[in-house]
Design a protein around this nucleic acid. Sequence first.
DNA 1: GCCTGGTTTGCAACCGGTTGCAAACGGGGC
DNA 2: GCCCCGTTTGCAACCGGTTGCAAACCAGGC
Lengths: 332, 332
Amino acid sequence: MAATLKDVAARAGVSTSAVSRTFTDGASVSDRMRHKVETAARELGYRPNALASSLTTGRTKLVGLVSDNFRNPIFLEVFDLFTRALQDIGLRPLLVNLSQETDPQQSVRMLTQYSVDGVVVASSTLPPAFAEAFRDTGVPVVHAFGRSVGAPPVHVVGINNIACGRMAAQTLLARGYRRIGFLGGPEGATSTQDRLAGFGAKLSGRPGVTLSHSFAAAYSFDAGRDEMLRLLDQGPAEAYFCGDDVLSIGALSAIRARGLSVPGDVGIIGLNDMEMAGWHNIDLTTIRQPIAQIVDASVAVMQAMLSGAGATPEARMFDCEVIERGTLRALA
Amino acid sequence: MAATLKDVAARAGVSTSAVSRTFTDGASVSDRMRHKVETAARELGYRPNALASSLTTGRTKLVGLVSDNFRNPIFLEVFDLFTRALQDIGLRPLLVNLSQETDPQQSVRMLTQYSVDGVVVASSTLPPAFAEAFRDTGVPVVHAFGRSVGAPPVHVVGINNIACGRMAAQTLLARGYRRIGFLGGPEGATSTQDRLAGFGAKLSGRPGVTLSHSFAAAYSFDAGRDEMLRLLDQGPAEAYFCGDDVLSIGALSAIRARGLSVPGDVGIIGLNDMEMAGWHNIDLTTIRQPIAQIVDASVAVMQAMLSGAGATPEARMFDCEVIERGTLRALA
DNA sequence: GCCTGGTTTGCAACCGGTTGCAAACGGGGC
DNA sequence: GCCCCGTTTGCAACCGGTTGCAAACCAGGC
């Protein structure tokens, strides 16, 4: 049985308030008192019960970390960064896996029952309505990797997918590609829609440039491979902007399986710059999403909200960067 | 401000105990009472405060999910499976990232302050002493992906690394390889040591069979590639058992970079069977670690401990299976 | 109508802390 | 030594629930 506040007070011969105060900083305690309490606490191995104190203070230092993406390897990095950043400022992530089967409302309720101080939603596919459900309970919310809109319902941190699309288009044009394709993720994902919109906007109206597009069934290797095999059979474009690196790697596999070369026969540019993209045997030219910056900014926003600031939701969108490797031909 | 038990009691015109009882199953409440309370609760949107109740019941349904491995993609799957399995039985994972900088003792304290009902340690590299630190606080612990020892200090679920080593050796021998190498992970990792032990034991005493071994700096692509490049320069073995799939893929990259072919010039067998190993452009022969079974068993053990059973720690080790793909030559 | 025994209900103490308030304390100035 | 004022300390109420215990209730048997 762990020692309680009362035990410490009894042993030190002081009131429970005194003990409580020595453990909350900023409270007025004399040196002599602090010393007495601290030795008693040490002798008993006392640790304050975080749950009990949160009952009166109203703060738990618990933060919901909600995601529906447990497939894409970059999310392992995202979790790594989030957990560390949250730990660093004394917050504890309560991880919620929002797989298809689980009812979103259910997890909203669950998190409110645990009185989380805030919620971080890390997903590029979750609908805005989900984050709003949290906001409606009065809990600070930040949607990381979310979509940028004019006046967002909650704080959003992410990348500008439309700008990424433009950037990809610009990169392909500069290398002299004319027959261009877009191989997106699932058609319903807003990230896919935005990337295609920016991509198409930049290409449209260019003389001699044609754009075709299609969608893979998922953001996965197999889906990318299957879709590229299909495209190759019906006469491929000169280069493709793929919605994601995993998709790109699947596409690369398909191209090589057909005996074609990259970038000789077909060029590929991906998006994310996952670790694997830089591996020598893959060497994928891609657009880097600044994950660490997104995570840091999200945590900073959360911290601001917890200290009362940041009441009006804002969208904070980061720029991406083209990482040149070996899957596009050289500049014209 | 959320409605409390008292608010509901007032509205329904009953005592707080009555309300509490209608929300804890197994308590004796008449139908009429239950109905009154439920409508009042619905009207107020009442949700019981999980933290407050845990104060008296002593159960939080919070479980620490502790890991130090946020680099290996298979751990994303591990987290996926763990969070879902825990959620399914009503437990909430409090994720703890035990990166190098964080003091293990610190997180032990943190988790006890939050009165977690149990702790799952998911790591193949953490020392047993760490899990023991939890056990010493009286919290149920299960160490998933841990090392098998005779009488473990805590419940351990994982694979038998020694048997895996033997299995790899057997597979290589059956294909007629004679000059054999072991390319391990960091020398200090117990998983590496055990795999080498089993591997060496099976090979030793075979006439004409030689075993060389070396260690990569980390379980990473670059470390595997670097070490294999070094080995190739000093005259490689005919086939290697690599400590891990990521390492294997790095090694494959190195072999092809030197213009050698797989399995023509060098054979490779990995361990884990991460998703990528099955990708067409990698096609790695490897030993599959039954991740889902390990997770399920770990959660089952945890659940048993939470209901009072499983007092004496046991080691539950699963068998692995060779997945034949394209990086070893055909059977002799 | 009364007694019996099983259910249902409310009272009040408790879980482990926090905090407003007023009393006790302590040091400086006279 | 006394008074004043800022600090330190303890009391007691409270956070939002749970639960042992005893009283109130109810149906059935006589």
